[in-house]
Design a protein around this nucleic acid. Structure first.
Lengths: 124, 124
DNA sequence: ACAAGTGTACTAACACATATAGTACAGTTA
DNA sequence: TAACTGTACTATATGTGTTAGTACACTTGT
């Protein structure tokens, strides 16, 4: 399970959303798996249930999970929903690159950062 | 001179800060150059002078510019201040890459975005 | 049937950041 | 002196994020 950084400035609900997407991407969870209940996750993270609910609502609006009243929330089998979220992440990343470009970062410095973080994949 | 996107969600003061840093990086302005006055820039962009003042305060706190009461604001000669800001931008970009990596974006998708935005530089 | 757990849907309040509006003061320059 | 400059306030409005509390409908296990 992922962790939260309450003082990072990143909205908690976004951290929860990204946490589950990351777990899906890493194969730690897969389609059909039951999500933690809203209340239990709120207790675990010592945050408000409404915040978890908001995160789950975001995940459900994106088709990443589906919820059944009285039963719980489950990870969707729909791979296209997951890839759509990845597409949105790509869009966010594009904005970050654009900002870096505007501030004068050269392509060499950019690729340096990329290679640093993706070094494991490059070895393959 | 750069332009503002009032509906981008990016704070206006940040856009102003980044705009001048970008101009410095591109060589459009250099150390000792006089900055536009707070009021004139506010009129030019049709925004509140306080917003410009906040942007200038950020730039001054970072050593990018210095202000003289009654005379105006001027671009600093201190290159280390500018490089420090670039360093911070690099750090922010690193965080964005890390997020993209965590969400499962492959290096091919990453490089695709990079090449798209830096295409002009690649031609050189 | 009952209790416990589940998602869902509200309203209210608070904190914070952003931006606007207006005013005032101190210093410089022509 | 007039017009410009930066600086420093207060106040207001807006939007977002979070917390708090309540209520309802549904499912599951006993």
């Amino acid at each position: 399970m992922f962790q939260l950084d309450l003082k990072s400035g990143v909205p908690i609900c976004d951290q929860i959303v990204n946490g589950f997407i990351r777990m899906k991407a890493l194969g730690l969870i897969s389609g059909g798996d039951q999500m933690p209940s809203i209340r239990s996750l709120a207790i675990k993270f010592s945050i408000n249930p409404n915040t978890v609910q908001k995160a789950y609502a975001i995940l459900e609006s994106g088709g990443i999970i589906y919820s059944v009243k009285g039963r719980g929330s489950f990870l969707s089998d729909d791979e296209s929903a997951h890839s759509a979220v990845i597409s949105r992440a790509k869009s966010d990343f594009r904005a970050a690159v654009r900002t870096a470009h505007e501030l004068g970062l050269g392509i060499s410095e950019i690729t340096e950062v990329i290679n640093d973080i993706y070094k494991e994949e490059k070895k393959c």
